[in-house]
């Protein structure tokens, strides 16, 4: 019996993938041995990230790690992947929303319609600004060309931010060629890990989302061909990958704020930042009005955040 071979492409470049996906895939390959091997490719390596969904759905690539937003998935849930503004406060919110508040079922249904298997969603880091110039107020954001996720960009454009989408691997160079003034794509751990801390000087401590929601996906046909134990092994490795990121980001965010030397921290006062949070409430309603499925997801987000509010500390402060 010959070895099953999969090609998997992640949305992350090599430096980031070293943490967010490679350990899990290495583990999978070690355990699966001769039965199955997954070859991992990085951002834009085989196909550009914008074509990732199509390539997986068509079978050019067997599996994908990405958020729904960046890979432009043609589903009702696309806007909620990546950074949905203020959808979550902590990275633990994401798995709770998926496993206990019913997002898994919705995602599963939506992706089944388009020939793709949604395997598992997990949390990444919060969404902060890293910029060349300091940001002390909302006015400082005006006119800044910023690399960010599509939906986050749509939301931020009302504050004068000019969202730019470029291939992930080109961001560092784009900062230097002046194509970009900053990134709103990650927390500080990623800024240091992937080298963006070397090309930016300031880190804004306010965030527009506490955790990025990203998932592992596979081509439906290819997934169905796998024997059950390999499917289970793949799920276990995905979960391991989610777990790794929980502590890697959580610890990294704190320690780099405290000990990092490459970026100066700036903050927009809470009272002013409240405008952004208010705008997010409006944005949620706009999105909910677009379709029944979106309305359902927004409802879940609202219910979840209300519950957390009621639960009080440490779930929500103030």
């Amino acid at each position: 019996q010959s070895t099953i071979k999969w090609r998997m492409q992640t949305y992350a470049g090599a430096a980031l993938a070293e943490h967010v996906v490679k350990p899990a895939i290495d583990m999978f390959n070690t355990i699966a041995g001769d039965r199955m091997q997954i070859e991992l490719f990085y951002a834009d390596q085989l196909v550009p990230t914008g074509e990732l969904f199509r390539a997986m759905q068509r079978g050019t690539i067997d599996a994908v790690q990405s958020d729904d937003d960046s890979m432009a998935s043609p589903t009702e849930v696309t806007v909620f992947g990546g950074y949905f503004p203020f959808g979550s406060r902590y990275s633990l919110d994401v798995p709770v929303l998926f496993n206990q508040y019913g997002l898994n079922e919705i995602w599963d249904e939506e992706y089944s319609k388009v020939g793709v298997k949604h395997i598992s969603a997990g949390a990444w880091d919060p969404c902060h600004f890293a910029t060349k110039e300091p940001i002390h107020s909302l006015a400082d954001l005006k006119g800044k060309r910023v690399f960010t996720f599509p939906t986050a960009g749509r939301f931020l454009s009302q504050f004068g931010v000019v969202p730019v989408t470029l291939p992930w691997e080109d961001i560092e160079v784009a900062m230097q060629t002046g194509e970009l003034d900053g990134v709103a794509w990650s927390g500080i751990t990623e800024d240091y890990t992937v080298g963006w801390a070397d090309v930016t000087d300031y880190f804004l401590t306010n965030n527009i989302s506490g955790a990025w929601a990203g998932s592992f996906f596979a081509n439906q046909g290819r997934w169905n061909e796998l024997p059950e134990d390999l499917q289970t092994l793949f799920r276990v490795c995905c979960d391991q990958s989610h777990y790794y990121r929980q502590w890697w980001y959580w610890g990294g965010e704190a320690s780099l704020r405290v000990d990092g030397t490459k970026m100066k921290l700036t903050t927009i006062p809470d009272a002013e930042w409240a405008q952004v949070e208010e705008a997010a409430v409006k944005f949620w309603d706009e999105i909910a009005a677009e379709s029944p499925t979106k309305a359902k997801v927004v409802e879940i987000f609202k219910k979840y955040n209300a519950d957390m509010q009621k639960a009080g500390r440490p779930y929500r402060y103030g």
Partner: peptide, 17 residues
């Protein structure tokens, strides 16, 4: 799906600013 790659290179080229 191997037949799709030559074309997906066109999209890659487009994004190569």
């Amino acid at each position: 799906g191997g037949s799709e790659i030559p074309f997906s290179a066109a999209m890659k080229l487009m994004k190569w600013y």
